[in-house]
């Protein structure tokens, strides 16, 4: 009951946050030099001031900026995010068509990160300061330090050019769930997953090693429990709390963080669309993607908060 109230409260809190996000983004977008009308008409030397004005009015860019914002807001409340100026497609449609690619890529990277990081982190903590720990820490530190676009380029270099196992860019016009696409997904997925795995592993190791020194661990051993039970039952659950926090923030990279990686691998996802939208000053598209990312991050954090309570009985929301 109290949990339901907590969730409702948190969901309501999204509204003011999104208001803030939208105002800032809207302001920034309009502050950047060059508007869509100028960009579109630059290709047409014969276009004069009348054509310009006409287009402005058609795109809703003629009104004062506060009125534009209110108009945009009105649209959002009715589920209308406007349209892409050039193609006249609805923004929501563009997002829906690109979203699965981005989500799948992010999810792959995220799951890959967790699957690698949690067992490695446990191993490193149990064998603290031994060879395996030192090696895994070195690898994790490298994973964090290497810029992911560079890692991506190296993977292409090795995987596509040297080994020839992958095409150089994402296959065009292949449906997402085809073998070609899923096979190609591995490269950008690994790139995203490496960074995620590195940071999760480090947090897992640190928090686990810290828990291992607590007295309840000695008490559990004094009960005669096998070391496996001591570590995987008693220590693990206590150390997962900080990992959940990190994993939740990392889900944000599913949507927002893959922008560069999608560019490197020409992955047809939301990140690429976002960069194009910025380049083309597609105001409506930028706004919608930003809002969507915001909602996603907030929801991920909400899930993390709920997981805390599930892991640690001392945390209760009421």
């Amino acid at each position: 009951m109290s949990l339901r109230r907590f969730i409702v409260k948190r969901l309501l809190a999204i509204i003011p946050i999104l208001f803030g996000v939208s105002i800032i983004t809207f302001g920034l977008v309009h502050l950047t030099p060059g508007d869509p009308v100028q960009q579109i008409l630059a290709l047409n030397p014969r276009a004069g001031p009348t054509e310009k004005q006409q287009l402005r009015e058609q795109f809703g860019l003629a009104a004062p900026i506060w009125e534009q914002y209110l108009n945009w807001m009105k649209g959002v409340f009715t589920g209308d995010f406007g349209e892409v100026y050039r193609s006249r497609r609805a923004v929501s449609e563009v997002i829906y068509s690109r979203l699965p690619e981005t989500l799948l890529l992010g999810l792959f990277g995220w799951v890959f990160g967790l699957v690698i990081a949690i067992p490695t982190g446990i191993y490193a903590a149990v064998h603290k300061d031994q060879l395996g720990d030192t090696v895994s820490r070195f690898v994790a530190l490298s994973g964090i330090s290497i810029p992911n676009f560079w890692l991506g380029l190296m993977l292409i270099l090795i995987g596509s050019l040297t080994l020839g196992w992958w095409p150089v860019t994402a296959p065009k016009r292949a449906p997402l769930l085809s073998f070609d696409m899923l096979w190609y997904l591995i490269l950008p997925g690994l790139t995203i997953g490496t960074a995620a795995a590195s940071s999760i592993m480090r947090v897992m190791r640190t928090s686990m090693a810290e828990e291992m020194n607590k007295e309840y661990v000695t008490a559990a051993r004094a009960k005669g429990l096998p070391e496996r039970t001591v570590v995987l039952k008693h220590v693990l659950r206590n150390s997962l709390i900080s990992v959940v926090t990190l994993a939740a923030t990392l889900t944000a990279s599913i949507v927002a963080g893959s922008v560069i990686i999608e560019q490197v691998f020409a992955w047809p996802g939301l990140g690429q669309t976002f960069i194009q939208a910025i380049r083309n000053a597609e105001y409506n598209l930028i706004m919608a993607i930003t809002l969507f990312t915001g909602v996603f991050i907030i929801l991920a954090n909400l899930v993390a908060d709920i997981l805390y309570a599930a892991l640690d009985p001392r945390i209760r929301y009421d």
Binding site: K214, E215, Y216, T218, A219, A220, A222, K223, H234, R237, N238, L311, D312, P313, R314
Partner: peptide, 16 residues
């Protein structure tokens, strides 16, 4: 069997 000095730390906080 052992009775520990500080029961609060000897009990695992996340299990009943």
């Amino acid at each position: 069997a052992m009775i520990f000095q500080d029961a609060q730390t000897a009990l695992n906080p996340v299990y009943s």
